[in-house]
Design a protein around this nucleic acid. Structure first.
Lengths: 194, 194
DNA sequence: TCTCACATGTAACTAGTTACATGATTGC
DNA sequence: GCAATCATGTAACTAGTTACATGTGAGA
């Protein structure tokens, strides 16, 4: 678990453990909703790659492309792989969620019910879209494997497990948003605007 | 939605809209897992209260206590209430989750299955505890209201809705962690340590 | 005496976002 | 000519965490 690798560093190493990629390609993979488990922008990724290189966890070579700008392709080192193996199962404190829509829900007693209802319906819609997207990816994965990927050591197995988290989360979120909107519809109390 | 109020600022205003509190009491309420929807430390809260006061959204008075240190009790102003009403239903972009355990899951193909299994079981246990805690609070709330709070304009209604989000989330999280642990138990592939 | 709960602050640092900056090639 | 994709970086700022700092009173 080398000196000072950040969680983003491990996210990058995790992708590079599967295939060598440029900073640009890493950025594409860590873009929501595809990299929903750890989104990041290129402005954070490029400096982080520099740090990983300084720690000897990745190396890069410049690949010249005739039609496109040159790129730096990063490859994980044996040290990088060792760091990943040490990190994946190491102790981890319970995460805290910080979700502004939930905060809004907590403050919803101050709101105009009709407006609040619209907000929750809109988010139900947004998350339903994300859910559908994840389900598409899952279907693809299942089709390629004829069911769930069975080999524990294949990245597809891990992707399958991760995707199921995203799907479970989005499904529950959509359900909750919809329920809140409905409940707001049925609620007592007329709104007096301030 | 005054000039530059942060989300934490609204979280504080949301609590103050219900009752006047000191910075210390606000910090207690925004401490996980109770303030699970927006956790914060006192070191962030005290300066934020200063900003809210500068914007005229809260006022405070010093309350002298014979047995304990003096405290500043903050009260929301009419401007603060107006800012809250404007904010609660205003448009909000879809949130992104950043959960390290999900990232670990994505990288689990690099792990020792037995160790990874232990990690996910541990988190299933942690979240089951949180779930039980939320359910206790919900039961209390339901008992006091004889079912779900019906008045839309009561803070208890909002607390009920928020709590249901937390419960849904924790339930799905426990389920997922447990499923991952089980799946790791059944998976093919012996581990060769690096 | 020592620790805990109450009470309020500041300083230093880390992580993440937004904006700035540049430049090639392809397709409309 | 203009926008989009590819490609890589830096600068400025915001939000959040950890650590530092101080002091009272109650109870073990």
């Amino acid at each position: 678990m080398a000196k000072g690798v950040t969680t983003l560093g491990y996210a990058l190493l995790g992708l590079l453990a599967y295939e060598s990629l440029s900073g640009y390609d890493l950025a594409r993979r860590l873009k929501k909703p595809v990299g929903f488990f750890w989104p990041a922008r290129h402005s954070q990724i490029y400096p982080e790659l520099g740090l990983l290189e300084a720690e000897g966890l990745v190396t890069f070579r410049v690949v010249e492309q005739p039609d496109r700008p040159d790129k730096k392709v990063y490859e994980i080192t044996e040290g990088g792989r060792a760091a990943m193996r040490a990190w994946v199962s190491s102790p981890l404190p319970q995460s805290t969620v910080r979700d502004e829509l939930v905060l809004r829900a907590f403050c919803v007693w101050l709101a105009n019910p009709a407006e609040a209802r619209a907000l929750f319906l809109e988010h139900a819609r947004l998350h339903a879209e994300t859910l559908a997207h994840y389900q598409d990816i899952l279907r693809d994965l299942e089709q390629r494997h004829g069911g769930r990927p069975r080999d524990f050591h294949s990245p597809d197995f891990a992707a399958y497990v991760t995707l199921n988290c995203g799907i479970g989360h989005e499904r529950q979120y959509v359900e909750w948003c919809t329920w809140v909107a409905e409940t707001l519809g049925n609620a007592d109390g007329a709104y007096r605007d301030g």
